Computed example of a mutant assay.
Amino acid sequence: MAGDDSGENQAGRSGLIVRIPEAEPAVRAWRDRLDPSARAGVPAHVTVLFPFLHESRIDSSVLTAVGEVIGRHRPFEARFERCGRFPEILYLVPEPDIPFRRLTEAIADRWPETPPFGGQFDEVVPHLTIAQGQDDAVLEDAETDLRSRLPVTARVSSVYLMIHDGTRWQQRASFATAARVARAPGT
């Protein structure tokens, strides 16, 4: 999710994320310093869909529909063992990334008017941003430090709706993935 002042943080903007609290001890200090979204209230996360619908369009029927879409997916584990780079961006790579891609595809299919990242990219690459808008030397320092703090393993069982209030991002709802139902043999 965005954290700069380019209009991405207008009041009413929303996004769907998977929170990765297991990564916070490893990444918090770097994110607080180098990722504007952290300073704007966004926890360590992998984005499912940003931007999502404007807050004015999110009513109980939308919340129910998001819950239904997310509820079709099973909980999963993701492991963050290495860093990756985009220009001026350092991130952690989730493995496997397919479950994140499927969540993004499912939400984008349900709300085609909200393509991931506004349709800016041909391919959406799941990632946990550590630093953005930084030069290579700063990214290298962060990556060197992070190597000693990895791997991080996370259990993913929820997706969170975040809405920008004009100053900070606030969590407004959470949506659970489907729980596996244990069945007795022969039933």
Rank of each mutant, 00 (worst) to 15 (best):
F100G: 07
P43Q: 04
A182V: 11
E95Q: 06
A11F: 05
R28Y: 12
V156T: 05
T167V: 12
V152G: 03
I98K: 06
E68W: 09
F50M: 11
L53E: 10
A38V: 01
L161D: 04
G12E: 06
A173N: 12
D145W: 11
R31C: 00
P36E: 08
E22G: 04
G15C: 07
R31H: 00
Y160W: 09
D97Y: 10
S174M: 12
A44G: 00
Q132K: 13
G118A: 06
F117K: 02
A108S: 15
G7L: 03
I107P: 01
A173S: 14
E22Y: 00
R168L: 14
I58R: 05
A154C: 05
T114D: 03
S37R: 07
R82M: 08
D5N: 15
V124C: 09
V159Q: 10
P36T: 02
F80K: 04
P25S: 01
D145A: 15
V27R: 02
Q134F: 02
S158A: 14
P51K: 05
D165H: 04
G84L: 02
A29W: 06
E105N: 12
A137H: 10
R39G: 15
A2E: 13
I17N: 01
A173H: 13
V46E: 04
R72P: 03
G84V: 07
V159M: 10
F80W: 06
I89K: 03
G15Q: 06
S148A: 14
P75F: 00
F50Y: 15
V18I: 13
N9C: 15
R19I: 09
D5I: 11
R33W: 09
F117E: 14
R172L: 08
V18M: 00
G119H: 07
P87I: 00
P99S: 03
S61F: 04
R183M: 12
M1N: 10
F76V: 06
E68T: 14
T64D: 14
D97K: 11
R172Q: 14
R155C: 12
P25A: 02
D135L: 11
G118D: 10
L49P: 01
F175I: 04
A176K: 09
V27W: 05
T129V: 04
H164E: 11
D35Q: 04
V152H: 06
S14C: 15
D4F: 12
D135C: 12
A108E: 15
D35T: 03
E123M: 05
P115D: 09
F175H: 02
R39E: 11
F52R: 02
E113C: 10
S157F: 04
P51W: 10
G166R: 01
R110T: 01
I107N: 01
E123C: 02
R101Q: 12
P151V: 01
S6R: 14
P21R: 01
R101C: 14
D32Q: 15
